[in-house]
Amino acid sequence: MVKLRFFASLREKLGEGEALALPAGSTVAAAREALLARGGIHAEALARNRAVRSALNQKMCAESAVLADGDELAFFPPVTGG
């Protein structure tokens, strides 16, 4: 089970977070695809044409990063500011 967390505008749409069961060896991309497959607000918020960043256990990561049971995976929009 992977603990998902959403931040900024994604949190507003999807809530604070949830748990997601994935097969062993799944990647961040597979987790995003599983959420996209739900359709509705998940498909809208995490659409492939939207810039979404991810962090695995509080470290920025690529979508190719492999997940392990108990990991925390966060999704958030790119950060801007000045």
Rank of each mutant, 00 (worst) to 15 (best):
L67K: 01
A43Y: 00
A8D: 07
K13H: 05
P77S: 07
A68F: 02
A8N: 12
R32W: 05
A43V: 00
L73T: 13
A43I: 02
S64T: 15
R5I: 09
K3W: 10
H42R: 07
F6I: 03
L36Y: 01
G40L: 04
A8T: 11
C61A: 15
V79N: 00
D69H: 07
F76H: 01
A74G: 02
L67D: 11
E18F: 03
H42C: 10
I41W: 00
M60L: 15
M1D: 13
G25C: 09
M1I: 14
L35N: 05
A19I: 09
A37F: 00
F75E: 10
P78A: 09
G17A: 08
F7K: 11
T27S: 12
G15W: 08
L67V: 09
A37R: 13
A29T: 04
L20Q: 04
R5A: 13
K13W: 00
R48I: 03
V28Y: 07
L56Q: 12
A37Q: 13
G39W: 06
L22A: 11
E44N: 01
C61T: 14
S9M: 00
A31E: 05
A24L: 11
R38Q: 08
L22F: 12
V66T: 15
G40W: 02
V2E: 08
P77R: 04
E72C: 09
L10I: 08
E16Y: 07
K3P: 05
V52I: 15
P77A: 09
A45M: 05
A19E: 15
R53Q: 13
G17H: 04
A51W: 06
D71C: 11
D71N: 13
G82W: 01
M1L: 13
A43K: 01
G40D: 06
R38V: 04
L22R: 03
A34M: 04
G81Q: 05
L14V: 06
F76G: 04
G17E: 06
L73V: 10
V2Y: 05
E12K: 10
G17S: 03
Q58V: 04
R48V: 10
R53L: 15
P77N: 03
V52S: 11
E16W: 06
D71G: 08
S64N: 11
A30H: 07
V66P: 03
G39M: 04
L4M: 08
A19L: 10
A29R: 14
R11Y: 02
D71P: 12
D71L: 13
G25P: 08
L56M: 12
K13Q: 14
E72Q: 14
L67E: 10
P23L: 06
A55E: 09
F7I: 10
G70Q: 10
K3I: 12
A43D: 04
E63D: 15
A62L: 14
E33W: 00
V2I: 15
L36S: 04
E72G: 05
Q58S: 14
S26D: 08
R32C: 12
V52M: 12
E16G: 12
R11I: 00
G25F: 03
G82L: 09
G25T: 05
F75D: 05
L56H: 12
P78R: 11
Q58K: 13
V52W: 03
L10D: 06
A47Q: 04
E12P: 01
D69A: 14
S26N: 04
